[in-house]
Design a protein around this nucleic acid. Structure first.
Lengths: 348, 348
DNA sequence: TTGAAAGCGATACCAG
DNA sequence: CTGGTATCGCTTTCAA
């Protein structure tokens, strides 16, 4: 659709090549015939000052006519703080469990009048990332997983962050921590398998990068659960592809395992399929347990036993953030999120 | 932990209750014994001006010592523009296909020196959302799905956005469009089923809110493919739960369908399991086709036929954004993303 | 090579 | 009830 541009006298030039600057509150003031201060009072409903209704109307109309939108940067520069809660956007494909949790959290923080910004920090590591985040002067930072050290926390605090929360398996100096207790997940799975009479337990460890901070503690938890018993734990590195799964299944009988905790439901599905294709009977020859309690586990045959993980509700976490922001002096709290419970179905 | 405050001469007060303000470039200048201008030159590597190496070192050291981090808001206020590319964070749980695409895109935009901000806009609709986004003065806005009208585009443009791109099934006045061609997906699936001799085709339509903008065109595409033939298309509303799926399966034979396009692979898995539990043989009695070509389709038995969707690569889209930003005068382009191809496996 | 100062847009104090 | 004005942190032009 070609567009022909014609210059018409006394008409502003076409917006495209020389877009006029965005209207400011000064423009609104001029159009409404009042001062900038008055505009600010009206648009922010400042209660400490009374403005005549006629003036209010004129200001609102002028603002609408110009399509005025306040400039967040200018505002927070003046205010000395923002209402931004910054979260690094997950760099790895994140499951439905976690992404649902993030959405709920966003919604809850939005209700508390925070602006949630997921900052795309791909390829920047550790404290450099913290510096990049600090440039936005967020009022709070919520970091999933590892990757933020005590120095990073200090950088953020010095940049005015009133709360730094980490959401992972270990606490970081100076930050509030939500301990997700992945160890508990592995522990629950292994305990369950042991109770069902299994003694040679495999634990799938995904080879995908970025999952170590979840997978390592899950493996460790399984180890801890069976330490001092007559059972053994074998780590099974596995990439999320059919071919590696088939190779693992092919040498399965040689491994002499009678059960496996497959990291999560998706890996469990992958491995269970490979085992069945190889003729290994589930659960008779090998019991399989997943984690995350996804829908797909209920759709498999046999139905997949899994570890249900009780995440804190988004609103709970939002409240926690809010409290931390309002009381920046308080000692960083460590909140252990327990709630790994086995859902026993047919695969174990 | 009550804190007693004592003013100690020449000593900063305890950091916790009255955190000292973040260091500014003026602080750095003072410590380095130079002017603010010099600090700015050094930290930004301004090439138009030559600073002695000794001064450079002093400035860098001072900055490091104070933990100085520039204030993004002040900077972009002064500059008159930002490098922010804003994307509304998806409000609905998003599949691995799409979330992988988003990550790739973020990475690519990061390489082009843009800051990707996923703005959590839950509960704000249409043009209100656009106003909220405009407050950040993003240089570009990338909106998936529907929900942005021509007015919203205008608001963003007036706030200085040099490019607005929509990513969905229909173009919006004034914005560049990436047409995802969901119709093509439905069309491909239905055509495939017809070619395999099926004549009574069901199409699953998810009941989950927020998916209409995907599901409607997929259904429409199937309708279009079979219009004027002897085949029929039946819409099948379905919630993503076991129970509704079982109910649908229970009345399946009464529906007299010989095939179904199940919206995507996950719904296909859900329905296929319910059908099999009901004794309906797949593909003999009913052929099933999914979409998105997820791993799980390969793990089902029978292996799931699916529609593979060729999304543009993240770098391609990033380049497109970059070009649109650099040439804001150009007429908004409409880029049709074709690439729906059937992967025939065993379920159809 | 470095410094002084203007100004980006919004807000809040203090006068009128 | 409304207007002038200083201020937030940073960049950049102009002088020195």
């Amino acid at each position: 659709m070609p567009t022909v541009m014609v210059q018409i006298p006394n008409t502003p030039p076409p917006a495209s090549p020389a877009p006029r600057p965005a209207p400011t509150s000064a423009d609104v003031a001029r159009l409404a015939g009042v001062s900038r201060a008055t505009v600010s009072y009206v648009l922010n409903n400042t209660s400490a000052v009374r403005i005549s209704d006629a003036t209010r109307r004129r200001v609102h109309e002028a603002a609408k006519e110009l399509g005025y939108v306040p400039h967040a940067a200018a505002r927070s520069l003046r205010a000395g703080h923002s209402r931004i809660v910054l979260m690094p956007a997950p760099a790895i494909p994140v499951g439905p469990l976690y992404s649902g949790f993030l959405n709920e959290l966003q919604w809850a923080l939005g209700r508390l009048d925070y602006t949630v910004v997921q900052y795309g920090t791909v390829g920047v590591q550790g404290d450099d990332a913290a510096r990049a985040w600090a440039e936005l002067r967020p009022v709070a930072v919520l970091v999933p997983g590892t990757g933020l050290g005590p120095d990073g926390v200090a950088v953020l605090k010095r940049a005015g962050a009133r709360a730094v929360l980490t959401l992972g398996s270990e606490a970081v100096e100076g930050a509030h921590a939500l301990l997700l207790d992945h160890e508990g997940v592995g522990h629950a799975a292994a305990t369950h398998l042991y109770a069902r009479g299994r003694r040679r337990v495999g634990v799938v460890v995904p080879e995908e990068p970025g999952l170590e901070s979840f997978s390592r503690p899950r493996l460790e938890g399984a180890r801890r659960a069976l330490r001092g018993t007559d059972a053994t734990v074998t780590a099974l590195p596995l990439a999320y592809e059919e071919e590696p799964a088939a190779r693992l299944a092919a040498r399965w009988r040689g491994l002499g395992l009678d059960s496996v905790f497959a990291y999560n439901d998706e890996y469990a599905m992958l491995l269970m399929r490979a085992l069945q294709d190889e003729g290994v009977r589930v659960p008779e020859e090998t019991a399989v347990v997943g984690a995350d309690d996804l829908m797909l586990g209920r759709l498999l045959r046999p139905r997949l036993s899994t570890v249900h993980i009780e995440l804190p509700s988004g609103s709970d976490l939002a409240d926690l953030v809010d409290r931390a922001v309002r009381e920046p002096g308080a000692a960083p709290g460590v909140h252990k999120v327990v709630g790994a419970s086995v859902v026993h179905r047919d695969s174990s």
